[in-house]
């Protein structure tokens, strides 16, 4: 992180709909120059929190400081928002729509037109500027929506599922743009269910469950906190025969891999030494069992992983047996 200026300070906010408490005593900070992931099951209170940050609704209790104080109309011009449910004016030229939304964010017509063309060129849509949204493919529209979100060079962007509907090439394009913005000092709040994107991009994360903070902190720290006292191995042999192993289980995330749970006083170095000393087992792969965010998510959200709708492409190889056994 280049900068530790807090772009957002959320302080013990609460929000209820009738008797139902959607957000319950939630506090977190988002800093300039970081990608802050916000995750949580559907209905956990993410959108309500985002809407409170955007001043669409007010918290019942607590305060939210945006860019150094309570939100004002002028500060709304320094926020870029890509809503989860989004669209474009169907029968308006892309460039005209971008100029309108840019001027609404306080840009001059000329500035907005120049910046819009720059961004359209950057996302390979320069030649589509004079076309209407209905003439563009869904992926192209997604890129235009992202360009609209960032065209006024906001200090804070809030993006909800930025990659949905994008092919891998365009996903990479948008991802690079988000990383560039982060490097330029923009505070980025990213809400997504794509856990591997969070693992790859986010600096810190907040997981909300039932309106409360479930996980909060740097992504690596959160993962390490959930590290199992176990190693993951791939190879041949009777793993349970190794000294210091209490339990062996299949790794849900990798076919053929096993999770070896170690006795409390045993370290992974001890296991490695035991494998080396035992000719009955051969190993092709050996690593610490750090759970993927997906596993952590499932564990924290308490959902059954086998019926969960979440799609994940975790690159990390570890299981959370407590859940798997449930």
């Amino acid at each position: 992180m280049n900068n530790r200026d807090a772009a957002i300070v959320v302080n013990h906010i609460e929000k209820s709909y009738g008797k139902f408490r959607a957000v319950d005593d939630l506090s977190f900070d988002v800093y300039a120059g970081e990608i802050f992931a916000m995750l949580g099951p559907n209905g956990a209170g993410k959108s309500t929190t985002i809407r409170m940050i955007l001043d669409i609704m007010r918290p019942d209790k607590g305060t939210i400081d945006i860019l150094g104080g309570p939100i004002t109309d002028a500060k709304k011009d320094r926020i870029g928002y890509l809503p989860e449910e989004r669209g474009l004016y169907k029968d308006v030229k892309i460039i005209d729509m971008m100029v309108y939304l840019g001027t609404l964010k306080g840009m001059s017509q000329k500035q907005a037109r120049t910046k819009a063309m720059d961004l359209l060129n950057r996302v390979d849509l320069g030649e589509q500027a004079e076309k209407k949204a209905k003439e563009l493919s869904k992926g192209m529209q997604q890129k235009v929506q992202f360009a609209v979100t960032v065209m006024h060079e906001p200090a804070l962007i809030i993006i909800d599922e930025p990659f949905s509907g994008l092919d891998p090439v365009n996903t990479l394009l948008i991802k690079d743009m988000i990383l560039d913005l982060r490097d330029q000092g923009t505070a980025v709040i990213m809400s997504t269910h794509q856990m591997y994107q969070i693992e790859e991009m986010a600096d810190r994360l907040l997981m909300i469950s039932h309106g409360q903070q479930a996980l909060y902190g740097p992504v690596d720290e959160v993962r390490n906190q959930h590290a199992l006292h176990a190693v993951v191995v791939e190879g041949e042999g009777d793993w349970s025969a190794l000294p210091g192993i209490t339990r062996v289980q299949d790794d849900r995330n990798r076919k053929g891999a096993k999770v070896l749970y170690m006795a409390p006083d045993v370290t992974s170095n001890d296991i490695l030494a035991a494998i080396a000393a035992n000719p009955a087992v051969t190993v092709q792969r050996f690593e610490e069992a750090v759970p993927s965010l997906n596993d952590i998510f499932i564990k924290v959200a308490g959902e059954d992983p086998y019926t969960s709708q979440e799609q994940d492409h975790s690159v990390s190889a570890a299981a959370v047996p407590e859940v798997a056994n449930a």
Binding site: I56, D73, K76, I79, Y81, P83, E85, R86, L104
Partner: peptide, 8 residues
């Protein structure tokens, strides 16, 4: 959604 988060 975009207009409402920009203007009241």
């Amino acid at each position: 959604e975009i207009i409402a988060t920009t203007a009241s």
